[in-house]
Amino acid sequence: MSKQVWKPGNMLYPLPAVMVSCGREGETPNIITVAWAGNVCTNPAMLSISVRKERFSHSIIKDTGEFVVNLVGRDLVKAADWCGVKSGRDFDKFKEMKLTPQESQKVKCPGILESPVNIECKVHQILELGSHDMIIGEVMCVTVDEKFMDDKGRFDLGAADLIAYSHGEYFELGKKLGKFGYSVSKKPTKNKVKKKTK
């Protein structure tokens, strides 16, 4: 096996592609597509998004101190890409992509109704790192689409056809390979069938 040595770069892939909605009161809400997002803390629940300072949404989030992370399924991938390459300075992204602003529970900016999961956040901290600022948000509320609830009352996120972003391309998630802890779980023992003696 041989490997090439490259200069430092962002090669941590794949990543979730999410649509982040934000907005100032009295103004048209905006959407920015972010691939650099992740969980950072369980208690309190926190996540991070990384946004360039020059992006239109950066100042909105910094000024209002809130945003909503909207997960992206296969049916939203075109809208996610469009919202990532167009600026809210020039377009009403909700209108252009025929998306529905969803009233949030704990923040003033809307979520995206068509998204399977909306994660409402308040800004906890902004870290200035260089090309991007990492915005850490505390999760205030999560709303989920009821159509993804299974017959046992559990949320089946796998049915939402979520997408991943890898080095400039979008991908569907593949088949499930296991679940957390499966590598160390004890395999169930098979019941031995006793032969009947005549």
Score class of each variant (00 low, 15 high):
A160V: 06
N191T: 13
K176Y: 09
E27D: 11
G158R: 04
K106I: 00
Q125D: 07
G88T: 13
L162W: 02
P16F: 04
D151C: 11
K78L: 13
S185F: 03
D81Y: 03
L127T: 02
F91V: 15
D133L: 00
G168W: 00
A164I: 10
L15R: 15
K53D: 12
R55I: 00
D90M: 08
C41R: 03
K187V: 08
K147W: 10
I126G: 01
V85P: 13
D145L: 08
K98L: 00
K190W: 12
I119F: 09
T100P: 14
I32Q: 15
H58D: 04
G26A: 01
K196W: 13
K186N: 14
G73S: 04
V72Y: 02
K86R: 11
P44T: 05
D161R: 08
K62I: 05
S2N: 08
E172F: 05
V34N: 06
L129W: 03
S59R: 01
S166F: 09
P101M: 08
D161I: 02
R74G: 12
I163Y: 09
P116N: 00
K98S: 01
A80V: 01
M140R: 11
V72D: 04
K190E: 15
D145E: 10
F148E: 03
S50T: 10
S87I: 00
P8N: 00
D90G: 08
S2F: 04
G174P: 00
S183V: 13
L47N: 06
L113M: 15
K195H: 02
R74W: 07
V18C: 07
K95H: 09
E172G: 08
V184G: 02
S59E: 00
E96S: 13
G181V: 05
I60Y: 01
F155H: 15
E128L: 06
S2Y: 05
K186D: 15
L99G: 05
G111W: 08
T189N: 11
I119Q: 09
